Amino acid sequence: MNNVDKQKLEVIKSYINAYNSFDVKGMIKNLSSDIIFKNITNDTVDLVTNGVDEFKTQAEKAVSFFSQREQKIINAIQENDIITIGIDYTGTLAIDLPNGLKEGEILEMQGKSIFRFEGLQIIEINDIS
């Protein structure tokens, strides 16, 4: 993480801390009004939001899925205005999901999140697991 822009990394850490705390307002504070968010699972895009309002609606809905969740940054690499972070993820389900996962089950996975910046504003996030 040594060669990563410190201010941008702080913006990412603020976003992750807000995510871990179920703080949607904190999550969106450094997002562009035109934010594009994509969730990619097993090389398939399974969620896309366009704009901060769609992002906020999805983030508020996702809050109800977990009783606990935590993303830990394990590394960060920067290329121009893009920072890719490695993530260790743990979450405890608060509800039964349509895919068969049950309330109380603990999800553990590794993935990465790609943040694209314009200045110190996040304009795109790709969550990949």
Rank of each mutant, 00 (worst) to 15 (best):
N3A: 06
A62Y: 07
M27A: 01
D46T: 13
Q121M: 09
D96C: 08
I87T: 14
F55V: 02
K29H: 10
K56Q: 08
Q78Y: 04
G86C: 09
R116A: 12
R116D: 07
L97A: 09
I35N: 15
F55H: 01
G111S: 04
V24T: 05
G100K: 15
V45H: 07
L101Y: 07
Q78W: 02
M109A: 14
A94S: 13
I83A: 04
S113K: 06
L9Q: 07
I28F: 01
T49A: 08
I123S: 09
F66S: 08
V45A: 02
N30K: 00
K25P: 01
S21Q: 14
I16G: 14
L120Q: 07
N80H: 11
K61P: 00
T44E: 15
V11H: 00
I87D: 00
F37K: 08
F66Y: 12
D96T: 03
V52R: 12
L120W: 00
L107C: 02
K29G: 09
E108K: 11
S67T: 06
E108V: 15
K102C: 00
G104Y: 06
V45W: 05
S21E: 04
Q121K: 13
F65Y: 09
S64M: 06
I36A: 01
T49C: 14
I128A: 05
N75M: 12
K61I: 14
P98W: 02
D43P: 05
T41S: 07
I128G: 03
V4C: 13
S32H: 01
D127L: 05
F66D: 10
K29T: 13
K72S: 13
L31V: 01
G100L: 03
F66G: 06
S113P: 03
I73C: 14
Q58R: 10
L97F: 10
L97D: 03
R69N: 05
N2T: 12
S67D: 11
S33G: 06
Q121P: 00
S21L: 10
A76P: 00
S67Q: 15
D81C: 09
F22K: 13
I77Q: 14
K61N: 14
T90D: 06
E70P: 03
V63P: 02
N50H: 08
Q68N: 10
I73Q: 15
K56M: 06
R116P: 00
N126K: 11
D43M: 07
D46N: 12
K38D: 15
T90R: 10
I106R: 04
A94M: 13
V48Y: 02
L93N: 13
A76D: 05
G91P: 04
D53A: 08
P98K: 11
I28K: 05
I73S: 09
L107W: 04
V63I: 08
I125E: 02
I40H: 04
K61V: 06
I73T: 08
F55S: 01
I28V: 10
N20R: 14
Q78V: 05
N99A: 08
Q58H: 12
N42V: 10
V52M: 14
S129N: 09
A94C: 12
I16R: 01
I35V: 05
S21K: 11
N80Y: 07
N75K: 05
K72D: 06
G26A: 12
S14E: 14
D88A: 04
I35Q: 03
S14V: 02
K25R: 13
N75R: 09
L101H: 05
D88Q: 11
T84G: 12
F22V: 13
I95E: 11
L97W: 08
G51W: 02
N80G: 13
A94E: 09
L9C: 03
E118K: 13
